[in-house]
Amino acid sequence: MQSSKDFDLSRRTVLVGATASAAIAAAPAGAHAKQAGEPALSKFSLKVNGTAHQLELDLRTSLLDALREHLHLTGTKKGCDHGQCGACTVLVNGRRINSCLTLAVMHDGDEIKTIEGLGTPDRLHPMQAAFVKHDGYQCGYCTPGQICSAVAVLDEIKAGIPSHVTADLNAQPQLNATELRERMSGNICRCGAYSNIVDAITDVAGSQA
């Protein structure tokens, strides 16, 4: 666990600290058999939202945990941590992936874009503005992942990548609600804001066309 000195003491910090202690207490069970209690570290760099970061982290650190716990970019959310919910979606070299299912060390030199890099409260990305306009959320927890995914979906359609519901594999895929729903199926919203999410994406797609 890297120092969390940049955080004010909060409920979250206390919880993280408690988890770390529990992990250390459990270590003799053989998790670090190689060098008694020493997790393997690795040095690498990530370019996140245009800024280069040098990191030295436990090899087991997921890209998601590197972003949240070490770079303190907490916009990207941890939902299921198993690639099933899409809350952790970020853009790596322009492509959307689940940041929970990849090791940070495997992204040495990659360009990562998170929700913080898409827009700011003062200068919203068009997709962020459309989610606000169409009320594309309720609790908001899945929203950063939904927005990162939605931005990539429009690029994927533009690039001619077909989907499960594309009728003609050899034609340019259409931009309609059926396509958007299928392409967004990796992002779960437990509040059920799906119809407004489709409206928001359709709005942005229309203004781009």
């Binding site: 492509r95 995914s149 499960h164």
Partner: peptide
């Protein structure tokens, strides 16, 4: 391929 997984997973 398109019937499997999600867009994020297929990218990886």
């Amino acid at each position: 391929l398109l019937a499997g997984a999600s867009g994020q997973l297929r990218n990886k």
